[in-house]
Design a binder for these strands. Structure first.
Lengths: 124, 124
DNA sequence: TTCATTTATGAATATATGATCATATATGAT
DNA sequence: ATCATATATGATCATATATTCATAAATGAA
């Protein structure tokens, strides 16, 4: 990879670089495991889409079915269903069936925290 | 848009649908303005990438320069720089120059809150 | 059973995006 | 001035992703 500095540069005197070893060590010590990073990013990514974020915010007011969300968001039920699946795969929402209707709701206190901090952040 | 239900369906008796008007009204009342949704999604999206999330987490330990991050993340400095720009455009990070070196650090208490809740969420 | 309704899902497509590469800019040293 | 270092940036490309469309599955009614 051109332009990249590997650690050998620190010992190879021909191309020494001003690197802050201490800061790198510090960052490494507090580094979050790759698995956790992936899990976290998937959650942030889930809320990083307007449709899904609107769904999540709407569900803070109570459970809704696919067709409710479709009307509210003004997008097709198929699109809603696809996005709900993504949110459900991440365990951010859950559903309960009542006849033909599936009611979706938030399934995670942390999601609510995320949303609240986000909204709080905006209102400043 | 095929498969979509517009509000006229509520009055057109030929194709009435079981929609929960009250829930839709409720969702509309608490709806976040589009501008805010966009701003929020851009922040979530920013943290929804492994590289950027790792950068953000690393910076919670203190400021770092581009080449530090490049070594730490094992990606090119160019890639780091591109991602730093995105984070800076969103005012999530700031930098200060010291000679040729630019030191980056977190610029927003809310980002730290986001990260903490995220990490807390993971550790359960 | 057959039909209608509600939701789910696979394929296709158009768009967004992250990394790389090449190059440019900025600061400092000589 | 020239050169080296540190970072920024534009273009390209490969991959990811959101929506649409068509269709399937699940429940309920007749």
């Amino acid at each position: 990879m051109a332009g990249m500095r590997s650690e050998e540069n620190t010992t190879r005197q021909s191309k020494v670089r001003m690197i802050h070893q201490d800061r790198i060590r510090k960052a490494r010590k507090s580094a979050t495991p790759q698995k956790d990073i992936e899990k976290l990013t998937s959650i942030y990514k889930a809320l990083g889409d307007p449709t899904r974020l609107k769904i999540a915010v709407a569900l803070t007011e109570g459970e809704m079915c696919v067709c409710d969300l479709s009307v509210f968001l003004e997008i097709s039920e198929s699109a809603v269903s696809h996005q709900l699946r993504r949110l459900k795969d991440l365990s951010l929402i859950k559903n309960r069936r009542e006849g033909q209707v599936l009611y979706y709701s938030l399934d995670d206190q942390h999601v609510i925290d995320f949303l609240n901090i986000g909204l709080e952040h905006i209102r400043e």
